[in-house]
């Protein structure tokens, strides 16, 4: 059991529905301040994007954020240095693509992330069948590898994916890349398939943009992940206070259904 399993398990057992906002590291010079704003707004954990030049699973908003971060000179090293300097008090989960950690060296990348206080990692282009080398490095470093279940994942495969997922299971609400959408899509059905085989917390993401959607998601799941809607605001110049207020709105919708 990883530290992330313990932390998120305790959250669930305490009856709290998790709010997990996403922010791209390096998207703005004040991104560390923005992380603090997410916590102040009521985030239970944060997905921190490490930019990659070719983000296959991301829609236009997070692509734009990745390119902005790379143009500003953001690197794996600069991200872990900044994260190590912050004391946020909530679990951090890195989200990036295989090549970033493969090129850095799997053990070295897992070790550096964990040293910087990151408790988990999501690599959307790392399918279950290719997990071996990375998950060994992650497990050794106490870095939880979070896997995704998609609406297209067949039932027999759901069990295998969930069994190998650490911390939580990412329940994709729709067959789409990241980006704002309407409603909960297939979120409820995907969560039900996860719940049928495991007690690991299931968090719904992909297209969750509004307080209403976050509320709907956390009625069926243990948590909600909000990415593009928040990153759009960051790209459009929202202040840390405005970002905090947006997250506060999500928090209130989740806590007061």
């Amino acid at each position: 059991m990883t530290t992330l399993d313990e932390r998120l398990g305790a959250l669930r057992d305490g009856g709290r529905r998790a709010l997990v906002p996403y922010l791209m590291a390096g998207v703005r010079p004040d991104w560390g301040r923005l992380l603090e704003a997410l916590v102040a707004g009521g985030a239970d954990a944060i997905e921190v994007g490490l930019p990659f030049s070719d983000p296959m699973m991301d829609g236009p908003v997070i692509q734009e954020a990745a390119l902005a971060a790379l143009a500003a000179g953001t690197t794996f090293d600069s991200v872990v240095a900044e994260l190590a300097s912050l004391d946020l008090g909530v679990p951090l989960v890195a989200m990036t693509y295989c090549n970033v950690v493969y090129h850095y060296g799997l053990e070295r990348a897992a070790g550096r992330l964990r040293e910087a206080g990151v408790l988990g990692a999501i690599l959307p282009d790392l399918a279950l069948e290719e997990l071996g080398e990375w998950s060994a490095a992650g497990d050794d470093a106490d870095l939880a590898t979070v896997l995704m279940v998609a609406p297209a994942t067949p039932p027999e495969r759901v069990a295998a994916v969930v069994e190998r997922s650490r911390g939580f299971v990412y329940a994709a609400a729709r067959m789409a890349v990241t980006g704002a959408a309407d409603g909960l899509g297939d979120g409820a059905a995907v969560v039900a398939r996860i719940r049928a085989v495991s007690r690991t917390p299931a968090y719904v993401g992909i297209g969750i943009a509004s307080p209403e959607q976050a509320r709907a998601a956390t009625r069926v799941a243990d948590g909600a992940i909000v990415g593009s809607a928040l990153v759009r605001r960051v790209l459009d110049g929202s202040s840390p206070e405005e970002v905090q207020s947006f997250v506060r709105g999500l928090r209130e919708a989740i806590d007061h259904p």
Binding site: M56, M57, C98, P124, D125, L126, A127, L128, E129, E130, L147, M148, V149, A150, P151, A152, T153, P154, R157, V161, A172, M175
Partner: peptide, 12 residues
């Protein structure tokens, strides 16, 4: 080689 794709594409 291998198959480094999002879970959504694995069944396909």
């Amino acid at each position: 080689g291998g198959r480094f794709v999002p879970e959504a594409l694995v069944p396909a």
